[in-house]
Structures are given as structure tokens and as C-alpha cells.
Design a binder for these strands. Structure first.
Lengths: 252, 252
DNA sequence: TCATAATTTAAACGACCGTTGAACTTTATT
DNA sequence: AATAAAGTTCAACGGTCGTTTAAATTATGA
């Protein structure tokens, strides 16, 4: 067991340790989020690896994307995955969490806004659903390919018996519970069980759309294009809102 | 290139060839579907392999389940996969198609029944949706673990950018188009594009429920159990029917 | 500038991958 | 019973897998 030696030799990123310079920069960035630029925000090896992993994990799954594929796509050495992340699995979790925090933050911001707009009433189901979906749909339409791959990766992980529960829960459950609470408030008298199931159906519809399998295109003979985010955005919200209302009226 | 020699040596199952005896039995079974039993319907090696592959592909994905895992679980020799199916991928397609045909057949039967029950009106959206979902949900509740694994495998394939379009389309598109047509007839004046998208959301909600990731259980702190098919059955139909009606009323 | 830490490189590790060859056993046909 | 076909077994193939090692290189701080 040579872990001690290895750790001493150099695993800076692996355990979250920071050099003095890095600690200084981190502190300054905390104090002055946008002002300080000690140097050009260059694309680090960690970023390159996460970008490549994001894309390939989404396309071929965890087992289908090899570290040699990923490091080649990133243009870095094979060994650097284990140096910076410790293992292939930790690379996956790092990728999941990188953009997950941003998403959580904006979702909560929009939910708070919806609550303010509707006060003292609770926001409508549609408003809550939009606050949940729009941070994804707007990035899907306007953000770069990184976010695009990230959403496809979420689709893969969410539907995976192997990773779904652990990885999705760790990143998203806290925020999701707040949205479920908000949906329940928007539908007075609804049974919590119905809303939980409804949320499950919602994420199912969402993640299949994010997976971009191309099946909808083939099925509709080109009438629908699964990469047309405007078409998706116009329909997903109304669909799941109507579904939730239908459930709240009473199942069976 | 020794394929010719190999094929000569013995690949009976690989190219669908049949011995004289097998041909006789196949003919007799065509003529008298349930009457003829030339011998006990024993569980063949092909069946054992498909059963094991069904389970492991569903649990760990195509790349995550090795042929050594699968043959070990089936209790047969490693080489028999390539003898009977030709390749790992062809084993996957065989598994997909084995129960897919049964499902298609019963779905069409139920759709025809719904059409008869409602004639001369078109059947309601709910009736069409039930004809689509019930063949799955009833087997999920009452059939053996084989069907269970098969549905989880469908969930994996349907959400996979790697296999989704090709494998799902090949097995299901013909029947699915008839259901989409029936939904359109149940919602006069609806735009085909809306119904295609609605079907996409429907399968998303369905397949996430079939994947059994356990996330719903964790999210609801045990209030909902994702393996409770009665709870699912009571809610999925109403949810997607309400969603489709909501879409047909006009998106945006 | 110089020691030290952080990062990158290249090579290799043992394990496992899907697939194949060839011998062997069982089943079917004459 | 003899012959052929179908099915099974075991061992091995060349490759690729995630991970580790030790040395070389680059960046950092006194």
C-alpha cells in the first residue's frame, strides 16, 4: 500500500489541497468575485478533462467511454485523470457536480422570483414548472456545447440503475424537494404522493428530451426535430403542468 | 478470413438455419399453434443466454455487462454466445426483439378492442393511452422477473444516444405510429407535431419509471416506492392523458 | 537563484475484453 | 449401427481496460 508515498509525491487536486498562491487567489475571488484577475483564466487540464469526459460519457455511457478516449479528446496524457481526480468514477462525479451547482442556484433564484411575483398567493403550477425547466431549456438553446453534453449526461445518469439514485440525489435532491413543495402549494389539497410521482414523470419526459436519441425525428419522418429547443420549450412545460393538474384532480 | 469454414462447422442458430426436425416442428407449430408438443418445452441455451443478458444489460448497460458475466449467470460456456448469436451486439438485438413482438401484438389487439368499444366514435385519449401502457404495466405487476428486466432494458435503450434510435425504432416504430394516429383521432383538431412531442414525453415518463433507479424512493423518503406498480398504474395514465389534452388545447 | 512543490510524461502493470480454433460430446438421420 | 449435424467445451488469441510507477519538466516561493 503505497498511497501515502503517492499522496506525498503529488496529488494536489486529488484531495482539494491548495498551494499558497492558489489559496490567495481563492480568497480574493471570494471577496471580489468578478474584479480580480491574477492571470488569464486559462483552460486548465482539469477543465479539458471534464469537458471531454462530459461529451464522451454522455455519448457512450460510463463504461463505453475509456480513459484513453477521453484523454485523447482532451489532448492530455492518460495518467492525468488519476492524478487530478483519483479514479474514473471520481471524474464522472466531478463532471456531474461542476454545472449542477450553477443549475441549482439559478433554479432557486427563479423559484424565489416566482414566489415574489405571485405573493401573497402561492405561484401557479406553470410558474413553478417554468422555474424548474427554463434554466435548462434556455442553456440548451443558447449556451455552448459543454452545457449541451452535460444535459445529455444527466439524461444518461438519471435513467441509469447503476448511478441514478446516488449521483442524481447527491447533486439535486435538496433543490428538487423545494420544487416539489412549491408544486404542492400550487395545487391545494393535492396528495404528496401524487406530486412525487408527477415529478418523476416530469423528469422522465425532460431527460428523454435531453438525451437526443434522434428517435422523435425518425418516428415523425422529420416532422419534429429533437434538437429544436423552441419546439420543446413550447410543449414540455404545458405538458407536465397539465399532467400535474390532472394527477392532483385525483388519479385513477 | 475463415468465416466460411466456421460457418460450415456449426453455426445453426447464427443464420437462422434449421435442421429437418426443427423445420418439421416449426411447420407443425404454425399449423396447430397450441396442440403439438413433440417434446418438453425445455429451457434452451439460447433462452438461458437471453435471460441472463436481459438482466445484466438492463442493470449495467451494454458495455458494462461482459460476456463472461452473462455466460456465468446463464451457467453456460463463454463461447456459446458467438456460436448462437454471432456477436455481443446481436445478442442484444435478439433480447430486444424476443419480447418486443409479443408486446406489439397485444398492444394492437387492445387498440382494436378500444376502437370497437367506442365505435363509431374514435376512442378517447385515455383509452388509447391505456391500450399502450397496460400491456406493460400488467406484466410489470404479474409476470416474472424476465419481463421486469426486459422493461428496464427498454428504459436503458430508449434513453441511449448510442442505441435508442436504431434499436427502438426497429422493434416498435410501426406499432407506435398507429397509436400516435389513434391519439390524434381522439383529439380532433390537434396538430400532429404536438402529438409527436406528447408521445415523446409519454415514453420518457414511462421509461424512467421502468428503469427503477430507486430515486423516487429516496427523494420521497420512502413515501413512494418505485416498484409499487399499482401506484404507478393509477397515475401514469392520467398524467400522460392530461398532458396530451393540455398540448392539444394549444402549446405555449 | 535555488530548493521545493506541482504537474506532466512515458512506460508498464495485471486484469479483463470479445472473439476464435479445434477437439469433443450429444443429437438426429439414414 | 453408421454417418452427419448440432451443440458444447476448453484454451488461447490479440487488444484494451483502469491504474500505477518513476523520472522529467514546469511553476512557485524564499
Amino acid at each position: 500500500m503505497l498511497a501515502g508515498l503517492v499522496a506525498f509525491q503529488g496529488d494536489g487536486g486529488r484531495r482539494g489541497e491548495l498551494s499558497a498562491r492558489k489559496a490567495l487567489r481563492a480568497t480574493l475571488e471570494l471577496l471580489f468575485p468578478t474584479k480580480i484577475k491574477m492571470s488569464r483564466p486559462k483552460r486548465t487540464t482539469k477543465d479539458k478533462l471534464m469537458d471531454a469526459a462530459e461529451k464522451l460519457f454522455a455519448k457512450r455511457g460510463f463504461h463505453g467511454a475509456s480513459l484513453r478516449d477521453i484523454t485523447a479528446a482532451a489532448g492530455v496524457d492518460l495518467a492525468l485523470v488519476n492524478y487530478h481526480f483519483g479514479s474514473k468514477f471520481r471524474l464522472l462525479t466531478a463532471v456531474m457536480e461542476r454545472r449542477g451547482g450553477i443549475l441549482n442556484e439559478e433554479r432557486l433564484r427563479r423559484l424565489a422570483q416566482a414566489r415574489m411575483d405571485a405573493a401573497p398567493q402561492p405561484p401557479t403550477t406553470e410558474a413553478v414548472v417554468d422555474a424548474f425547466l427554463d434554466p435548462i431549456l434556455e442553456r440548451l438553446a443558447h449556451a455552448g456545447p459543454g452545457w449541451h453534453s452535460y444535459f445529455a449526461l444527466i439524461a444518461y445518469v438519471n435513467n441509469s440503475p447503476e448511478w441514478g439514485r446516488k449521483l442524481m440525489g447527491k447533486t439535486f435532491d435538496g433543490v428538487v424537494r423545494q420544487f416539489i413543495q412549491a408544486v404542492m402549494e400550487s395545487l391545494p389539497g393535492s396528495a404528496p404522493r401524487d406530486i412525487f410521482w408527477g415529478y418523476n414523470f416530469l423528469t422522465g419526459a425532460l431527460t428523454l428530451s435531453l438525451a437526443e436519441t434522434g428517435r422523435l425525428d425518425a418516428l415523425s419522418d422529420g416532422l419534429c426535430r429533437s434538437d429544436d429547443v423552441a419546439e420543446l420549450k413550447a410543449r414540455l412545460g404545458p405538458y407536465v403542468s397539465a399532467g400535474l393538474r390532472g394527477l392532483a384532480r385525483g388519479p385513477r
